[in-house]
Amino acid sequence: MELQFLGTGAGMPSKERNTTAIMMKLLDERGTMWLFDCGEATQHRILHTSLKPRKIEKIFITHLHGDHIFGLPGLLGSRSFLGGTEPLTIYGPRGIKEWVETTIRISGTHLTYPLFIEEMDEAGIVFEDEQFTVYAAWLEHVVPCLGYRIEQKELPGALLIEKAYELGVPKGPLLGALKNGADVTLADGRVVHAKDVVTSPKAGFIVTILGDTKYCDQAIQLAKNATIVVHEATFDDTTAQLAAQYGHATNMEAAHVAKHAEAKYLILTHISARFLPAQSEALAKQARTVFEHTSVAHDYISYALISDNDIVIKD
């Protein structure tokens, strides 16, 4: 899994930061990608990456402010031009369906793929299959706004193939059966137990992506024990009064969310244009006094999860 930030600014685009969009690349896990929010010109940002819009399987919208949705119509249309035929599902607050369908209808946009739109009125599970569960909860902003928690389900243990060979298991389907947790009987009548040649199941990752929000308990609950928490940091401690007034959070409040949630890693985004690029490290340094493993995202940066949920940053 890899998170690539396509827009990390707040409110309106700047030369350094576009409006909000985060791509979750699940190419190894399911061969697709999930997009979280789609600010204006998101597809322009995609042009500067190796991302393929036709690979986008799901789009999760946090709220209906323009800096989080104005890129949707163009991206949906371009996905058709780029050969997208697989279904696409959009999740979001009530109103997203009317907005998308009206825009597509009035503009005469033709889609070459099935488009489904799921609106949410209540917190809870919004998607689940054999690999993932996605939860949503309402945050505290000036309009209804969602945060999402993506839980990867437990991964099967690894087959200790050399040990299996030592026990006399031949190459072929018996190895696959053991990998799937089934005991097998060899030609000589001996039974090889899966538990003896397969490691224990491994916990999957948890990623929490929060929309615009004040500091709130709902954010902490969504972030509980998360591998990565993505939290807005529109303001800093010196502008905390403005943060509260406009339904946003400071870098320090985001750090307290990660700390109370006992998360592993915090990424700050949705940075106000009042902060110049050179000030990003200062924002991160301040937050690290509360939560050590904090970084500030910039456009195009990627955070990749590798073995044992370690994180590699790709600038």
Rank of each mutant, 00 (worst) to 15 (best):
R105T: 09
I106K: 12
S107L: 13
S107I: 03
G108S: 05
G108P: 02
G108A: 07
G108E: 02
T109E: 12
T109I: 15
T109M: 14
L111P: 10
T112V: 00
Y113N: 13
P114G: 01
L115M: 10
F116Y: 13
F116D: 14
F116H: 14
I117M: 08
I117R: 06
I117S: 05
E118Y: 10
E118L: 03
E119M: 07
D121I: 01
D121F: 02
E122A: 10
E122C: 02
E122S: 12
A123S: 15
A123K: 11
A123I: 01
G124D: 04
I125L: 09
I125S: 03
V126Y: 06
E128V: 09
E128I: 05
E128C: 05
E128W: 04
E128H: 07
D129L: 13
D129M: 13
D129A: 07
D129I: 14
T133N: 05
V134H: 05
V134N: 11
A137E: 15
W138S: 03
W138Y: 12
E140I: 09
H141Y: 15
V142E: 12
V142R: 08
V142L: 11
V143L: 13
C145A: 15
L146F: 15
G147P: 09
Y148A: 02
Y148L: 05
R149S: 07
R149I: 14
I150G: 04
E151C: 12
Q152D: 04
K153L: 00
E154A: 04
E154I: 12
G157A: 09
G157W: 08
L159K: 06
L159C: 03
I161W: 05
I161F: 03
A164E: 08
A164H: 07
Y165P: 01
Y165R: 15
E166P: 08
E166K: 15
L167V: 01
G168T: 05
G168A: 04
V169I: 03
P170C: 01
P170S: 02
P170N: 03
K171G: 00
G172Y: 10
G172Q: 11
G172L: 09
G172D: 10
P173A: 07
L175W: 05
L175T: 05
L175S: 10
L175P: 04
G176L: 13
G176W: 06
A177V: 00
L178E: 12
K179W: 03
N180V: 00
G181D: 10
A182L: 12
A182E: 15
D183E: 08
D183Y: 03
V184G: 06
